[in-house]
Simulated scan of single mutants.
Amino acid sequence: MNAPGPAASDPLLSLVREDLRGFGGYASARTCDVRGEVWLNANESPWANPADTAGSSRRYPDPQPPGLREALARVYACSQEQLLIGRGSDEAIDLLVRVLCTPGRDAVLSTPPVFGMYAVSARLQNAPLLEVPLVDGPAGFSADLEAVAAAAERGAAKLVFLCSPSNPTGASVPLDGIAALAARLEGRALVVVDEAYGEFSAQPSAISLMEAHRNLAVLRTLSKAHALAAARIGVLVADPALVRVLRACQAPYPVPTPCAQLATAGLSPEALARTAAGVEQVRSERARLATALAAMDGVTRVYPSDGNYLLVRLADAGTAFERLLAAGVVVRDQRAAPQLHDALRITVGTPEENDRVLAALGAKETIA
């Protein structure tokens, strides 16, 4: 199923595993461009399930639903050919590691403390993991991009993951630094910017850099700001040539029809307007919650955040975690993460939920 490809003359495609260059993948019934009125090519049921009132689930879905692709391209200001839609950002992370990294040889680089799926995917692929810790400074955590570049070059990294805004620490990676890193690693590594929380940041998307840097890719998701976590819609925005390779390696039917329909409706102008209003409220509540927490006894530091969460250091994080649980509030315990032995990550909720957090932790006042 392999065929000669242009990888030898294309610095970007040369990053793809040698055994997958030109790989055609599985040709499903929905990838064949055929039209008809009676569909008997996929061994589907001729009747809808009694629970399927819409009657749309008996057919296999389009691998990349056209209506959803069009809506996503509009939202992310890119071409449809640059999009790979999958089951959340997790699928794209896993695909990138499997397609670019030869097991036991090509490394993955991440910047802990950070989202754990980069390391998990590397482990599953037996790809060496390089870690360049974030630097905890006066302005918060930040990525040492010079150290990242040097480690990637020294350790033969094929993939460099930058989380921006970073989860759980909250800071965005400056666009000029991302561009410089991509330029330095051209032909050596793909720089992947995970913008799962990008809507909550004032910084423009790194998608704006991709025209000048083909070895740059961006992860986006509908799980956070768009409130569609259960729909599992994630997007990789990348060079069309790389997207074609990844699609050949993707499972045949990654986007269930009900999820695609829900996501498409959730990207309508009316829905996007409500999402934008929700994002603004989260930003306002983020500032309010940060101010109130910073004034509390027992809170030693509240980190600035561009996401919909706050990283908080406490004199006794264990007791704070238990007090929150006793009040019915579940937050993310970060004490096992590197550099975060005394920290909790608190998602910014509704004003009422945030007041409940403050009350449980014994805030002196809740700011209206």
Rank of each mutant, 00 (worst) to 15 (best):
S28M: 11
A265V: 03
M296R: 03
T264I: 11
T111P: 05
N43G: 13
C32E: 15
S223P: 12
C32W: 14
L222I: 07
L40Y: 15
A326I: 02
R301S: 12
L12W: 06
L181K: 01
D90L: 15
F141P: 06
A317T: 00
K158M: 00
A157Q: 05
S305H: 00
A265C: 10
D94N: 13
G86W: 07
L289K: 05
S14E: 10
L289I: 11
H213M: 07
A292Y: 04
S305N: 00
A290C: 06
A77T: 06
L324N: 02
G140A: 04
A71M: 05
P6W: 09
R247N: 03
L246F: 03
N167H: 14
E270P: 03
H341D: 13
T53H: 13
R21T: 04
A157I: 01
V218F: 14
D10I: 00
N354H: 06
R232L: 13
L95D: 04
R87F: 05
D297M: 08
E131G: 02
D33V: 13
A42K: 02
L145I: 01
V279Y: 08
P65K: 05
R301H: 10
V16Y: 05
G177C: 06
P351A: 07
A189V: 03
A251C: 04
I207F: 02
Y309P: 04
E365I: 01
A295H: 03
M1I: 13
S121E: 10
G137F: 00
